[in-house]
Amino acid sequence: MEALLLIISVERNQGMLSTIDDATLMKVAAALGEEEAVTLIEYIKNADEITDDEIANKTGIRLNSVRKILYKLYDHSLVSLRRTRDPKTGWFIFHWKLQPDQLEGFILSQKRRVLEKLNVRLEYEKNHDFYYCNTPGCKRVPFEEAVELVFHCSTCGKPLVHCGNEKIVQKLSEKVDQLRKELGE
């Protein structure tokens, strides 16, 4: 039988309807850290596989910062990594590639993480009464702790007065609602 070599190269994003665009990608980059991360992502999103050396040369970001950012992105699976050995020196060469399809998952998981923390905070705010000495830099203390301190701030010694947390509770509830909605919960 006749053998035929059929090469079908399927580009990753074809056939898949992505809901993420460049602007979001850049916002994530900005949220993840320095300005340099934005420049770096801007550059590697158009490249296929690329080594850290190349990125540093082309973007003018220092090699150690490039690696730092790449490792951070790698932690969140936003870039993939392939390792080869330099035949002459025996050193490892790292080939990086942006994985835009991981972005949505990353955003969702971050939102879930933040939401969990906000829920904890909201419960705590709702179930406690707070006392405060009105000195900037001092901490608010819940009622139980204030009793132990005989209503005097442990840091500045001023008397502790009741402090309403309605504003925090309201803003917190709104944020929690918004995140729930966005996560479709």
Binding site: I20, K27, A31, L103, Q110, V120, Q178, L179, E182, G184
Partner: peptide, 26 residues
């Protein structure tokens, strides 16, 4: 059916980049 995933709502949240994340617990 699904709104586009956007980081906007938590982009400036300190938890996102918090160094103490691993130790942060109620």
């Amino acid at each position: 059916k699904r709104l586009p995933a956007s980081i906007e709502s938590i982009a400036d949240c300190p938890c996102l980049l918090c160094q103490d994340n691993a130790r942060c617990d109620p």
